Simulated scan of single mutants.
Amino acid sequence: MNGKVWLVGAGPGDPGLMTVKGLACLRNAQAVVYDRLVNPVLLEEAPPACEFHDVGKEANCHPIPQPQINQILIDCARRGLRVVRLKGGDPFVFGRGSEEAQALREAGIACEVIPGITSAIGGLAAAGIPVTHRDHASSFHVVTGHLRAGNQPQEWHKLAALPGTLVVLMGMAQLREICAALIDGGKPALTPSAVVMHASTPLQQVVSAPLARLADASEAAGFHAPALIVVGKVVSLREVLAFDGPK
């Protein structure tokens, strides 16, 4: 008989932010297929006899292509194993979890999704930045800065016109272009903005600046991926809400 695959969100980086249900699945796994952004501490929660498959990707470096990852999941399940596909953040928030779930369904493999805390919310909260606030933002929008090759680029001028908070994942390689495009689209140059690197981990760093100067401030601080970009009035609340004190 086939086994089963659980697509589990590991959260934004802090291992304590993984869900109770996700942790229970991990502790009962016979195979774990994990991403680069998964905190290594979580792997220690798997049983000693568990087998591990590192399928981590970096920007412009995919040593194990997505179809091969799908096949690893299918092969492990067909061996009758309990398989945990451990993904950073939430499996369905720019994590290609839906593609993996589709492949498993087509192969006749049982699959269950266990949501995780996306960095777009949990990572910003760890930096003292709420995505909404009654006085500053009644909505938030999460977009990716890295689209599949061949797809149309993000329409930053339309995003610039939206009210509320804008959160950009996987956008560090284009930070300067994103900031310029938002300003060209009408977003005020003085809009409070920030970059959060290694969100919710002991390595977390934050740089805040008006939108027009965010790219310069980020480069001066030596920031790089993985990092979150956030644009909106809620960034100004960091001075009050940051866990590590005013910044």
Rank of each mutant, 00 (worst) to 15 (best):
V38Y: 11
V143L: 14
G3L: 06
H198M: 09
V55K: 02
Q68N: 06
V41Y: 11
A77Q: 11
F223Q: 02
E100P: 06
S218D: 01
G145I: 07
G56F: 01
V143S: 08
V131P: 14
F243T: 05
A180R: 03
K187A: 09
E58M: 15
V206T: 12
Q154G: 04
L203H: 14
V206W: 03
N28E: 05
A31T: 12
K87M: 05
H157C: 15
G185H: 07
V131N: 13
K57N: 12
P163Q: 05
D90P: 03
L37W: 01
S98M: 12
T191D: 12
I72F: 06
A107C: 12
C50E: 06
I114V: 07
D75N: 09
P202H: 04
L43M: 12
L214G: 14
R96I: 07
G9E: 09
G185F: 06
H133M: 06
G122V: 07
L104A: 04
T201L: 02
I229G: 00
P15L: 12
N151T: 15
G186V: 02
V207S: 07
D75I: 11
I64L: 08
R36Y: 06
F223D: 02
Q154F: 08
G185E: 13
P48L: 11
P246A: 08
P67S: 10
Q174W: 09
A29L: 05
L7T: 03
G222P: 13
G222H: 05
V207Q: 09
H146E: 15
A180G: 01
F243R: 01
W6I: 04
V8Y: 02
V41E: 14
Q174D: 15
E177Q: 15
S200T: 13
H157Q: 13
A101P: 13
R85I: 00
D244F: 11
R96Q: 11
P163D: 06
Q152K: 10
P15N: 07
T19E: 08
R36F: 01
V240Y: 12
V93F: 05
V83L: 04
L23F: 15
D75S: 04
